[in-house]
Design a protein around this nucleic acid. Structure first.
Lengths: 246, 246
DNA sequence: CGCTCATTTGACGCATGTCAACGCGCGTGG
DNA sequence: CCACGCGCGTTGACATGCGTCAAATGAGCG
């Protein structure tokens, strides 16, 4: 798969006619379910915005005024606990929706990882568009079901996997999702820090670091700087990660 | 809240006119979004079934032919790993939907806890009803968003909470959801075994047991047999459970 | 070229898992 | 009705893997 628009060289998302039609994530995002004329209606309520590294897109508990679609960069979704304890509940990549909340409040916070570009839809307006475009509502239901499935997979990871299995699963998923998450072929470009990975996998950064080293020593991966992973033994990585039920 | 129909004394769900209208979970389930005439259409594709303790309602990976609505009893949703490792990804109580899967396969298995009664809808037929009843589709979207929010909360629990906080959070949620999950006032009736609780919280049964004992010794709860918990110090339980972000 | 911060590595302790024995409630059968 | 046995839950002793604290290394950037 190729997502030309998700690279830095993509057309800038400026607010003018054709915005959506020329959007790089057009074919993967929720809007893929829309006809051209529907897209124009959506475009009318869309604002494109950017965020700098570390900036907050929205905060847990806030009134969910907007729903977003990530067009460029990466975002971490997280929840906080006292003691500075953090749990990253997901990473968002180009084409993914975020901000689909339930009861009048964002259920987690969203922070930019590096420079980020998003499409922003006023929640109320998007929801009323849903009544006009049943396809879009169906698409959102599909997306929600997918995210639920991923969430269950993550619960299995957090509750029952060893650190090595956790890290292998994480890398395997990034590899599987391919270039959208950075990297190509057997190369994975990690947008997030060791701290983010640790808080995603329910580990400490030290354990994450040691586990990277262990996978390297076992010949499963190679590290080309901390942010670039090359998969050396795809079968071994899959076995560690996918350890499926008997 | 009262759910008279969810008690064993409820009207039997036999396939005859009025089935849904007289259903005990009518007001909480997804069908709450439906008009009477819509309900009749739904009823036409509904089959009511029962399962005995431990029976499998559906298995992870199976073709998701049916979507279910639990009317009576409780169900555990789980995923398996080699070594007999298990992760319970959720408990289902009367009024909840299950089997809303994504890509052509159930994402987890569902097993009856005790005797269980369900409404069963052929997936394809229910999905086509969705196109006729936009309200129902919206309701399912809301349900999916709620479940996603709960899933994120559970990731926080699994990744970053101590055993005492995990158990307190679990009890607090059951308490909050009230009689639907068993129990009343400050009494919680646990439908599930220590093994199920352990596999839900990412702990061993020994740690769960010791943590129950510790909460009892600290005067937070009282145990009336293993399956009945009485909350003695509601504030203490909430503080342990809700430990919200600063 | 040197500073700063992220990452890695090392030493150590403790919380939780593991292994094992015990108790108790419940169902069954005499 | 009582005795027995089985399975679940509890408690105890011990081990170990991961977290904690601390220092070293190295990459990125001015």
């Amino acid at each position: 798969m190729e997502f030309p628009g998700s690279r830095p060289t993509a057309l800038r998302l400026v607010p003018r006619g054709g915005l959506c039609a020329r959007c790089g994530v057009r074919t993967v995002a929720a809007c893929a379910a829309l006809e051209d004329w529907e897209l124009e209606r959506l475009e009318a309520i869309t604002t494109s915005t950017t965020f700098e590294d570390g900036q907050t897109v929205f905060e847990q508990g806030d009134d969910p005024r907007y729903i977003f679609n990530l067009t460029e960069g990466a975002i971490r979704l997280l929840k906080l606990l006292p003691n500075g304890r953090r749990q990253v509940v997901g990473f968002v990549f180009p084409g993914d929706m975020l901000g689909l909340s339930s009861h009048g409040a964002y259920t987690c916070s969203a922070e930019a990882i590096g420079k980020v570009g998003v499409c922003r839809f006023p929640r109320a307006k998007l929801l009323s568009l849903l009544d006009e475009f049943p396809n879009l509502k169906t698409r959102l239901l599909d997306i929600a079901a997918d995210e639920l499935s991923e969430a269950q997979e993550q619960m299995l990871l957090l509750g029952r996997k060893s650190p090595a299995e956790k890290l292998a699963s994480f890398l395997w998923r990034l590899h599987r999702d391919g270039s959208r998450c950075g990297g190509s072929e057997n190369r994975i470009d990690l947008a997030m820090s060791r701290t983010d990975i640790a808080d995603y996998l329910g580990l400490t950064i030290e354990t994450v670091s040691r586990t990277f080293t262990r996978l390297r020593n076992d010949g499963v991966i190679r590290l080309d700087g901390a942010a670039h992973v090359v998969i050396e033994d795809e079968d071994a990585l899959e076995e560690l990660a996918e350890a499926m039920a008997d």
